[in-house]
Each structure stands twice: as C-alpha cells, then as structure tokens.
Design a protein around this nucleic acid. Structure first.
Lengths: 234, 234
DNA sequence: AACGGGCTTCTTGTATGCAAGTATCCAAGA
DNA sequence: TCTTGGATACTTGCATACAAGAAGCCCGTT
C-alpha cells in the first residue's frame, strides 16, 4: 500500500474509529484508493497505526454506504462505480434535498439568505483561483446549509452518506471547463427561488442542478473505464 | 435482564453480528427493551451467547439509527423517543417513499398491481383476525413493494433504517380501534392512484397516509410518558 | 505435458485481555 | 447530620490471539 493514506495522523483527539472512517472515506471518494482495489484489515491497521478493531468498525460503516464490499474469508474491496448504485444515490439525494429545499423556501429568513449568498461569492472566488478542492467543499457547504434550513439536519447527513458513489463522480468531474460557472449560476437560481419563498421553483431548480452531475458520467467513464462495474451485455 | 430477548436462538446460519442486530432492533422497536434502559455489552454477550465483538458491531449500527446512545466509559442506553427524532424520521420517510411512489405510478404493470391488491386483501384478513403483528408485517410489505416498484430498492432499505423511532410508535399504536380499517382504506387509495398511473395523486395519497402515524403520537405519549424525551419547558 | 490433491498463506469472524474513565458506595471527619 | 475523600465495581475503547474458510501454488501422479 502506497503512502496514499494520511498515515500517522493519529494521536489526535476523537475516537480512532471515526478517524479511520474519515481517512478511508476520503481516500475512496478521491479515488486515492482506486475502485476495485483490495483492502486488507491488517495492512490498514499497520498503516494507520491502530489495531484491526477500529478498522473493522470503520469498514462496516463504509460497507453500508456501498463504498466497500466485504466478502467473508476472502477480502475487502473498494467497490467499483456501478450504474445502479449511482442511480440509487441520485434518487436518494434528489428525494431528500428537494424535500429539504422546499422547507428552506418556506422558512428562510433574511440572514439565512445572506449566508447563502456569501457562500456563492466564495465559490466565485474559488473558481477564479481555480481551486477545485475549495470549490468542492463550498459546494457541499451550500447544499448543507440549504438542508439545515429545512429544520431537518438529518436530510444532509443522510444524503451525504447515501451519495458515496456520486461524490466519486463529482470529485472527478470538477475540473471540466465551464462546468464551475454553470454550477454557480444554478446555485444562484436555487437561492433566488428560496429567497422568493417559492417551494416549487426551488425544488425544480435544485432537481435540475442535481442532475448536472450525471451529465458528466459518460466522460468520466470514458476516462476511467476500470473504475466502473462491467456493463451488462444486453 | 429478563428473558425478553430471543436468547439462545444462535447457532443458526449467518453472521452473529447480523443476528444480534436483528434481535436487538426488534426488541427495541417492540419496546421489549424499554426506552431509557441501559444496555451492557457484557450482559448482552452473555445473554445471546456470543462475545462482545459482534455485540459492539450491532450496537454501532443501532447507534447510527439513533436507537441506542453510546456514551464512552459510561454506558449504552436505549434512546427515548424524541420529538426531533420522530420529526426527522417522518421527513425522511415522506421524502423517500413519496418519491418512490411517483416512480411506481409511472412504472407499475398489471401483475404488479395484482400483487399489491393481494397484500391489501391479506391485510383485511389480518384485521378480521385481529392479528396485529401480522398486520404490521403486511403494512411493511406493501410499502416495501411500492418502493421496489420505483426501481430503487434502496428507497425502502434507507427508509426502513431511518424510521426506527417511527416504528416504535407504529408498533405501539396499532391496536387502536378503527385505526386498521382506516389504514386499509388509505392503502387502497394509494394503490388506486398507482393503478391510474397518476404520480401526483399517488404522492399526495401516500403523504396523507404516512402522516396518519403522527396522529397517534399524543395518545402514545400519554400512555407511556416515560418512553419520551423530557419536553422542553418553554 | 496435463491434471489432481494437499499444503501454505492469505482473508475475515470471533473471543478474550488490557487500559482508561466514571458513578457509586462507604467510611471518616467536621 | 452533612460533607468529603477514597476504594471499588462497573462501563466502553482498543489491542491481541485464536478459529474457520478460501485461493493459489507446488509437487506428485497419470
């Protein structure tokens, strides 16, 4: 195993299991741990400087997000991106975030809108600086804020956990030219609808925006065919 | 610890952790393990005839569903039903199942509808026999079938996992008189809209139906005040 | 050369032991 | 009687040891 994981970042605060989970999830989503790759509990334990116990607990959690597949007595593998998993993740994300943005449109106060617009302005800055990682974080921040405005913070946390496969695509597709500007424009549309307290418009704008990610899927697939599940030969 | 748990049901097939999870979840949802009760890993291990390891892994999973709360160096407790958790669970369930039923309305074939109606007929039989447990199972079966018809089986599995708190209420509220008949009638309305391939009607009917559960909340709370989180004194 | 059986070595699942921290109980003193 | 101190018994988090099973390789056989 390469030094791809932020090894020896231990001895910080917090439970080891949570740190292992965060490290592994980030490595998988960023494709530092390539889809299809085999993971060994022993190897990970040695690498991260903990025992197998917290490693196992983190892997169990990743398994529920379908980011790894655990085959007893055989091995643990980073799942390949599959058509079905992406579709499911998209479905869940749309359902939760669209429901949330309706609530946000009904409840948003002036200072909430100010905060949302501030995030968009920071996205502009990140785009100009071509800081993709920062853009990615701000994108999450905006969607997170929209979810929280619904009064149901669980919408974001659940959506976040369900969209592991989507995040891998999102992460890989950001550098496309013009993509960022379009995303910012769509963010403005959504926030504008929320500002107008128009749930229907907000939901539709967000749904359209969320489906943007899928449009980049074929390009990603062409670029990294080995990251994907073998296609059904119909 | 009483013999409330299906002890010694081990030595069956499948991983111990899954069996422990199922046993604990059922015990919590059915209130055999009362809200607020403390759970001891050692005690559970001895009771179920396994070691602490699978117990811990099952408890971690239950913690993500907010059915137990784990406080390090202190103890593990069955969570009390809280206003916020119920509201969140309802939000998630509505978002996922309503989105799914829209898909079901678009995709349902004749034999799908036949299957749905068969479930409802069995519910009628269960109601006449006053078999509440069976009614409960069939209710899940119908909602499960509706979700699967959307083509996104994850809708059901996720909804199922998110609604731990709701299930506790559902389970406690079933014996109310007239309640079952009303539920069956609403099921018919939903299935009818699906049969008409009318997504809007199906969604609205299901949303109305799902909110039925909440109507029984005050009664449950009056009956088992100790099952609930202490209310904010505003 | 081709095939088959056994062994070696990996894997995860489970059990157990150790460490760190908290609440409780009891006793001693004011 | 009330307070306070410490010992004790519990808790979970983590580390480690053992068990069961599957894959691949090597060697013997055909």
């Amino acid at each position: 195993m390469e030094a791809l994981l932020p090894a020896a970042t231990r001895s910080r605060r917090g439970p080891a299991r949570a740190q292992v989970y965060d490290a592994l999830r980030d490595a998988i989503v960023s494709a530092a741990l390539a889809p299809g790759r085999q993971l060994s509990e022993n190897e990970l334990a040695a690498l991260l400087g903990v025992s197998r116990t917290p490693i196992r607990e983190a892997l169990q959690r990743l398994r529920e997000e379908r980011l790894v597949e655990i085959v007893p007595q055989l091995g643990t593998f980073v799942t390949r991106i599959s058509e079905g998993a992406v579709s499911d993740a998209q479905f869940v994300r749309e359902a939760l975030e669209c429901a949330a943005v309706r609530g946000a449109a009904l409840r948003a106060r002036d200072h909430d809108l100010t905060a949302l617009e501030a995030i968009i302005r920071r996205q502009e800055a990140a785009r100009e600086a071509a800081d993709y990682d920062r853009f990615y974080v701000l994108d999450d921040e905006l969607h997170h804020a929209l979810c929280d405005l619904s009064g149901h913070e669980i919408a974001w946390s659940l959506s976040q956990r369900a969209k592991g496969h989507l995040n891998r695509i999102r992460r890989l597709s950001l550098p496309a030219p013009g993509y960022l500007m379009e995303m910012i424009a769509e963010h403005r549309t959504v926030v504008s609808a929320v500002a107008d307290h128009d749930p229907d418009a907000a939901e539709e704008a967000l749904r359209h925006h969320l489906r943007m990610v899928l449009s980049t899927l074929p390009a990603i697939r062409a670029q990294h065919p080995d990251y994907f599940e073998a296609e059904e030969i119909a």
